[in-house]
Design a binder for these strands. Sequence first.
RNA 1: GGCUCCUUAGCUCAGUUGGUUAGAGCACGGGAAUCAUAAUCCCGGUGUCCCCAGUUCGAGUCUGGGAGGAGCCA
Length: 518
Amino acid sequence: MAEAEAYYITTPIYYVNDKPHIGHAYTTLACDVIARFMRLDGRDVMFMTGTDEHGQKVAQSAEAAGIDPLAFCDRVSQNFRDLTPLMNFSNDGFIRTTEERHTKACQAIWQAMVDSGDIYLDSYAGWYSVRDEAFYGEDELVDGPNGEKMSPFGAPAEWVEEPSYFFRLSQWRDRLLAYYDEDPNRILPISRRNEVLSFVKGELRDLSISRTSFDWGVPVPGDDKHIMYVWFDALTNYLTAVGYPDTEDESFKTYWPADVHMVGKDILRFHAAYWPAFLMSAGLAPPKRIFAHGWWTVEGQKMSKSLGNFIPPHDMVEKYGLDQTRYFMMRELPFGNDGNFSHTAMVNRMNSDLANDFGNLAQRVLSMINKNCEGLVPSPGLLTVDDGALLVPARELVDKMRARIDVQAIHLSLAALWDVVGEANRYVDTQAPWALKKTDPERMATVLYVLAEVIRHLAILAQPVVPEAAARMLDQLAVPEDQRSFAALTEAGMLRPGTALPKPQGVFPRYAGPEEDT
RNA sequence: GGCUCCUUAGCUCAGUUGGUUAGAGCACGGGAAUCAUAAUCCCGGUGUCCCCAGUUCGAGUCUGGGAGGAGCCA
């Protein structure tokens, strides 16, 4: 038995101070769909998400709430842990940067970077914004209403002057460029890759990676007046999760380096430039792929605090259904692009693609079998050219979808699946089994068998995106639990004639809520 | 200010190395069918392919300029 090939995929860790909205759910959902696909495809998957709990802002929020920072984090990180059951995520763990193991990992990688001569003590003077967690140049600042200095994003900025440890990022330019060159798909989409390339090709400055002005974070080893810069701390979670610093650990040896770091486009630079440089400096392999996805707007408008138009994932799931929500977010826009959420688009997708095309296909076929074949999987006769014209594309579908998932083109993998759904609906019409019932019952049985077998393929392949509905479809085809992976998409997994099927029930209802409610 | 990407049917987008009448889905109109969640199937039109100029026998596809949009950096 060949050992399953490992696959490690991560979401960013989310900032505990935020309230989860569809943007967070979207990132994790994309990873979930890919992780489920890989598991069904026989890969040994590690899928991680978590929360980023350090930094001055968190400490300030905790103080405002009148509790200590850890108690505060315990409370608010729950909001993100709750996304897993709500969205049916299949993450293999949930990491928090306040865990003891994470402190150890951060200090270990720091020490490794010190040992390779890439960290040095100097002093930092400049404008810093607590809210943005970022430093700014004098020329980037804007004047606030009372003449105070503000960051370009309108956050208060203060002049800070303090000792700081620096990372020799400037020394890593060529090695980073070589790393990008090794794989044309290193950073996707390509437009994002170009951005990173132009950033790194420009003048790379050394990076300040510690602060002395607050203490809610990971202390620098050997100099605990210094707290690690929050990004240094946060990025290291990807290592912590697989057992670092124990590089002999089975988990670390199996899963590192990560196959995909999924990130929002706003944090690409940290992942595509700083992080690989940190890792290489510490003698560790950099990630194989960084994918930056886009943002959702809502009814054409940006989500923002001032508009208060954040959509809590819970609201979408409640209103449209869980699998419907999952499908919409993965299908509506090319993965990587920005996209717009609208009630109309949501209802269109859920009614056209799910209810009318896929759901109704299963329902019409299963009903005919239920009524005309005594509720048993029918016995096929000799297959015709028409049958092959449907069966062959269904059997080739898994390869087509895999090729697309490999480059995170989730929307295209779904489009391929729906192509076959369309073929199947056309086949139903041209074969007209309801007419065959009177003229040629044996041929009717063959047609219904072919359809049931194609639906088996479709349901198995739809599991990553609509796990519950696909499972119900497979239940209705009496497909055993252990026959639902992609390995069953062969002749050996074919439906057995004579198997009793339960009475069919629709799995994708049409939208039944209020008509105009946007 | 520098750089990157985008601008194609009402909407969302495909358009490979330049080559005959520019495509898909949704929406819309007509027809067929009646197994099914009134779902399905067939047929149909619309496009100054952002604008201008150039290269070419020939450009949505290449070059230059311009307009609008998004983003990265200073």
